[in-house]
Nucleic acid binder design. Sequence first.
DNA 1: GCCGTTTTCGGCCCGACTGTTTTCAGTCG
Length: 575
Amino acid sequence: MNNNEIVDLLRQIADMLEIKGEVIYKTLAYRRAAESIESLGRDLREVWQEGKLREVPGVGAALEAKLDELFRTGRLAYYERLQEEVPAGVVSLLAIPEVGPKTARLLWSKLGLLSVAEVEQAAKQGLLRKLPGLGERSEQRILAGIESLYRRSDRIPLGVAWPVAVELMAALDAAISPDRIETAGSLRRMRETIGDIDLLAAAKDTAAVTAAFARLPQVAEVLGQGPTKASVVLHNGLQVDLRVLEPPHWGAALQYFTGSQAHNVALRELAQKQGLSLSEYGFRQGEQEIACPTEEEVYERLGLAWVPPELREDRGEIAAAREGRLPDLVTLAQIKGDLHLHSTWSDGAATVAEMAEAALRRGYEYLVISDHTHSLGVANGLTWERMQAQRAELAEVQARFPALRLLQGAEVEIKADGSLDFPDELLAQLDVVVASLHSGLRQEGEQITARALQALRNPHVDILGHPSGRLLGQREASALDLGEVIRAAAETGAILEVNSIPDRLDLDDAHVREAIRAGVRIAINSDAHSVAGLDSLRYGVATARRGWAEAAHVVNTLGAAELLALLARRGGSGG
DNA sequence: GCCGTTTTCGGCCCGACTGTTTTCAGTCG
């Protein structure tokens, strides 16, 4: 059982318990444990082998015993008993918006409905309105919920949502210029994927802002519009929710609507212990209302330092904020160069000179041209002969752009047998070697892990590119054992990449954090295949920030000389 | 079922909205 399967299982148990009508806190305990395991960044089985399950937040004696049973036998008797009480079909009804545990149970016990399709049919026959507590309106809402379930698209990558949000905020600003406008929700936290785009604005006349928003040319359909809230669908199909409030409530509201939910719950528990009640309007102490015009004031009143949105996942940031040990997160401005990008020599759209000029415009000190190597034929990968020709061109371009240190690297194929595309003596002549897996991604865990380890142990290899190989929404991560990879990187001093392509963001946030804990350095690279692709770096930086990365953990915050010295210390390449 | 900056037992987040209701239950974020 891997982490994902265990997380799914725990969430299913939580749903079943809720449908059964178990005390809600038991349900919440399972959900909390599931979230905690989801963001663990390492294989739970390893934690179990080390006998440290209890150190995972949200895992107590009872869950430790259940997880132990799962790992030992691959089964869980408790779950199997629950399944007999609550069929999987009932749980599946929870996917319908408007249907919660109580309604699901009702639909099952009174009508025997066990699938979304059966509920749809029953609703169309007018059977739901006869149930106790439901009426005609509820029946219509459930039908509408099923409709939206059918047409609901998957979560969209951060890199798709972000530019759309920026454009919308500019358009709203031009139309009516509210006092404040800001992203909220998972977008502000820079999660790798986003459900809906959440925006927040502050203005005296809130209704004027929602009205102006609904009239923006980007809007295709207005789902709902009131004085403080508007929900729309854009022409590109994305849903956007805008909330507008009066300026004195800005801080509390921004905090509240940024989430995450788990983070907010933890803050409220903290408030309660101090005799306060916290909501999106501010604090309340008895009859006294305490508005918070800024987010800082919300945290300050709780005795906490302001927490960067990327950390607000209830993964230990609240304790860190209390104890003054929040990380000083790496910023885009601290990045001094890009170590992985492509040119027209392989499958890039821009020439070396165009990329160099674009890098200078972004204030970089150095740039590593790291085109594909020959095994990756589809990408026009370079033979060693072409590498030498490219080196001559790099020298010419370097002469034209003296302010930029132009380095020659390569994204070298790790072949199916674990060997690399160039022999060591040639790798040694490159400034930076990124080694990547592009083929054999479906190999068994042991085999593909062995390939990656072989590459990491080669002293000429500096960076492991997009380690997991996942493509968000398209391809699962390979069976690569990232725990092993992180250990090997820690031993050998190899660097792990955070690839900034919006579909990759690989390493992900949880593994960035795990790598940093293990003392591994990371490189945040654009893997750009065009000039515009360089700008994806912000998403890689965001992912690293979500993994608690500081500048000291990120090699491309170093100057060129320091970076090359670091690479040279490790082994063959580097100058 | 978890957990300890008032607790190893008794707590465990807040408000809006909606619908079926005469004061509340369910769902959602």
